[in-house]
């Protein structure tokens, strides 16, 4: 690993985003717009809204980064640039961290904008600190990135990569407790949800929103961190120097 190469990668990824202003606009505008829509859909059910509204601020970065990273990595593979980089003095970690740095920054801005709109303009309620919510949102974004990176190895086309969103992300969102609290799910599903990283990502957000700063929150954060490391390690094994 070499900081020079890591930062060169981070800058290159940032340059690519800068050259694609429409993608940047979508990243920053879609989440607050969806929250605004949600706010008025739930206009008659303020209780439900208060429960899911806060956590949603931190779920968007996770989903977005998952999608963007899996496509970006797939492009890196299919354009031949990955093969070129693998023949150069670049450590796999340089590439992963380079993407991580830029995407984490984008996620922080996204979560900041979404949070500002939600709590400032849309009457979203949170008993906890907004900065803590945004911090967890950034952690979730990095988790999404790491998972996207790993799963992109199993897609050979953009069509497939996009399908990973309903195939891999949607079930986790359903099981995370966002729609139905986990203790009210059938036992089997509750058991399954314990093995899914999104469960802990959502739980941490819900706890901060409700200002329940207990040891379970720290467990959630620890599981998120461990999932990031595991996904990055698995992702690194999918970057092959030698290919058939």
């Amino acid at each position: 690993m070499n900081p020079r190469i890591t930062f060169a990668t981070a800058r290159r990824v940032a340059d690519q985003l800068r050259r694609d202003p429409r993608t940047l606009a979508l990243i920053f505008v879609v989440p607050p717009a969806l929250l605004a829509l949600l706010r008025y859909v739930f206009d008659e059910q303020p209780q439900t809204f208060d429960r899911v509204g806060g956590p949603l601020v931190g779920i968007f970065p996770l989903i977005m980064m998952f999608l963007i990273t899996s496509i970006a990595m797939l492009r890196e593979r299919t354009s031949g640039t990955l093969e070129r980089l693998m023949s150069m003095p670049l450590a796999k970690l340089d590439l992963l961290l380079g993407y991580g740095l830029t995407f984490a920054l984008v996620a922080a801005v996204q979560a900041g904008i979404t949070g500002a709109v939600a709590f400032g303009l849309l009457d979203f309620q949170t008993a906890g600190a907004v900065w803590a919510l945004i911090l967890i949102a950034v952690a979730n974004a990095i988790l999404g990135m790491a998972l996207g990176l790993f799963l992109s190895a199993f897609a050979t086309s953009e069509y497939q990569a996009v399908q990973f969103m309903p195939a891999f992300v949607a079930p986790q969102i359903l099981l995370a407790g966002l729609f139905v609290p986990r203790d009210r799910m059938p036992a089997v599903l509750e058991q399954i949800s314990m093995f899914l990283p999104f469960t802990y990502a959502y739980d941490a957000l819900a706890k901060v929103t409700a200002n329940e700063i207990d040891s379970w929150l720290w467990l959630d954060i620890a599981v998120i961190a461990a999932s990031i490391l595991l996904a990055l390690a698995l992702g690194a094994t999918t970057l092959r120097r030698r290919t058939p």
């Binding site: 290159r12 690519q16 031949g80």
Partner: peptide
């Protein structure tokens, strides 16, 4: 090593 298909970032 230069591959046959250009390995560059098209959006840069």
């Amino acid at each position: 090593y230069v591959t046959q298909a250009p390995a560059v970032y098209g959006d840069l």
